[in-house]
Design a protein around this nucleic acid. Structure first.
Lengths: 149, 149
DNA sequence: ATAAAGTCTACTAAATCTATATACTTTATA
DNA sequence: TATAAAGTATATAGATTTAGTAGACTTTAT
């Protein structure tokens, strides 16, 4: 399960994606609009900035914004920055590998073998889906909702 | 990430799968062979039994065994019994649904839309993979390991 | 009768996650 | 140039979940 940190990070990136090309957005604005505790969001945006996804501007009129185009930021990057696990087993994680303590021989573990497949299936989607794609999905959902009504 | 409980459950089922058709297996034997804390395993096997996957026999010479053939027990069932999450977001879980507190409109949430796809991809594999399949994978890994040496 | 084995409930310890607090730095602008 | 707006950084508290342990009980083979 993704942590709230990861969820909040994606939401914030989405908000900044919608604002791309305009003035930087203040933390407090994102926090209010997206229903995220402000002090928690501060830490998250700092992480995203240190990881090279955001620029920041201090002082009056400052705020945060995307460095890259929303179609160049992929969910897999966000999950990795915020530590959101993709793999369902630690021994199968590409970026946060850990041995399963109880495991006798990882090389011949059938469970691991299955969860490598699961990871690959998830990873494929997360590597292909950008912030822009998520924005497109929202637009599509919104218009199909209008059609129904 | 799967809990240790879920991992232990799969390991135990695999051990009993290899023993299918023979005498019931004692908890302490499974615990020793699979490197699982015995008292913890007791609880897990009880859950699996209460969920209808295992029979148990009390008293001397007793133990646990699979009720069904290993090719009729699928990983998805095990994860659901032990509460191991499949979905990466609570709002996307079929069996453990929970609303995301911060979410403004679930119906048009693009993030949710992506993670429905991720869940479906994972679910497909977990629904298709049985304990017998995992045993087969282990056998295949073992023989390909032999080929290399 | 006894020992082997599962059953059941409660509890504790550790880890992790979420959130908050506090003090500090930078910058626009009146 | 003082002030307020805004981000930076680190520490810490509180809540929740997970992992593991303890102990008393029941059933059954021999």
């Amino acid at each position: 399960m993704l942590s709230k940190k990861t969820r909040y990070a994606i939401k914030a990136l989405l908000a900044m994606g919608k604002n791309f090309g305009k003035e930087p957005m203040q933390i407090s604005r994102i926090a209010t609009e997206e229903n995220i505790p402000k002090k928690f969001l501060e830490q998250i945006l700092l992480d995203l900035r240190n990881a090279g996804l955001l620029y920041s501007k201090k002082g009056a009129g400052g705020g945060y914004g995307l460095i890259k185009n929303p179609n160049e930021i992929f969910l897999v990057q966000v999950l990795r920055i915020t530590g959101g696990p993709i793999a369902l087993l630690p021994c199968v994680s590409l970026n946060f590998y850990q041995r399963c303590e109880e495991c006798i021989d990882e090389g011949t573990c059938g469970i691991r073998d299955v969860f490598v497949d699961v990871r690959n299936a998830s990873l494929k989607i997360l590597m292909e889906t950008s912030i822009a794609n998520v924005m497109d999905r929202e637009a599509a959902l919104l218009s199909s909702k209008r059609d129904i009504q």
